[in-house]
Amino acid sequence: MTDTVAWNSRLGVTEALEDAGWTGDVDDPLSILRHPSGAVWAVVNDAGDCGVHTPAGGNADFPGDVEDAVVIAAALTAAGQLTPSVTVPLPQPAAANSQHPAR
């Protein structure tokens, strides 16, 4: 019998969340990741359909064609890792400010 490696179409999400302190589930470490806050992310099929569960019980499901960056942002937000208190605002270029004057 040979060992096989399961394909994870959301490997980029897995790696980003692991870098952010999420850990793989004991039973399925590449497809289910948990954050100490109680947030959970899981990929459910080879098409990349996945979901994020918040510590308060909310759910967000994403079809496989949603960009990884959107899924990562949702997972980090669910875990409280993407909030104004822990993110650094990017400076706006002068040209961007002139195109959108203050209201």
Rank of each mutant, 00 (worst) to 15 (best):
Q81P: 00
F62T: 04
V44E: 12
P93L: 14
G58N: 12
L11W: 02
N97V: 12
G51N: 14
Q92W: 02
V70K: 06
G48V: 04
D28N: 15
T87F: 02
D68W: 01
P55K: 00
A16T: 02
P91H: 06
H53C: 09
A102S: 15
E67P: 05
D25M: 05
D68F: 05
P63M: 03
V88T: 15
L76D: 06
A95I: 03
S98E: 14
P63A: 13
V86T: 15
V52K: 07
T87E: 08
A95Y: 02
T23I: 13
G24W: 07
I32Y: 05
P93S: 13
F62K: 10
V5W: 10
D27K: 08
E15C: 10
D28Q: 09
N59A: 09
A75Q: 00
P29E: 07
P36G: 03
A16M: 01
A74C: 08
N8W: 12
P93W: 15
P63R: 13
G38Q: 05
M1Y: 07
Q99H: 01
G57K: 04
R10Y: 06
L90N: 11
A6L: 13
H53I: 11
N8C: 15
D68R: 00
P91Q: 00
S37H: 03
D49F: 04
A60G: 06
V70H: 14
P84M: 11
L33A: 02
D25C: 07
E18F: 05
G58W: 03
Q81F: 02
P36L: 02
F62Y: 09
V40L: 10
L90A: 14
I32F: 01
A94V: 09
R103T: 13
H53P: 00
A96S: 09
V5Q: 15
D3A: 13
A69E: 15
D3G: 11
G64R: 03
L11A: 15
S37F: 06
D19N: 11
V43W: 00
W41H: 01
D25Q: 08
L76C: 10
T4K: 14
R103C: 11
H35F: 13
G21S: 07
D25L: 03
G58A: 13
L33Y: 05
A102K: 14
D46L: 14
L90P: 04
S31A: 10
A69N: 10
D28H: 11
H100P: 00
P29T: 09
N59Q: 09
P55R: 00
W41D: 01
A75N: 08
L90E: 13
D46M: 05
D3L: 08
N59Y: 11
A78M: 02
D28I: 03
L76G: 09
V13Q: 00
V52L: 01
V13T: 08
Q81D: 12
A39N: 01
P101Y: 15
G48K: 02
A95S: 12
D27P: 03
T14Q: 14
L82F: 13
P93M: 09
A47L: 04
T87G: 01
V13D: 10
N97K: 15
V13M: 11
D65M: 06
S37I: 04
V44D: 14
G80D: 09
D25E: 06
A74Y: 05
P29S: 11
V13G: 05
S85P: 01
P63E: 14
L30K: 10
V26I: 12
D46Q: 12
R34A: 04
G24D: 09
V40Y: 01
P63G: 12
R10G: 06
D61E: 14
W7F: 15
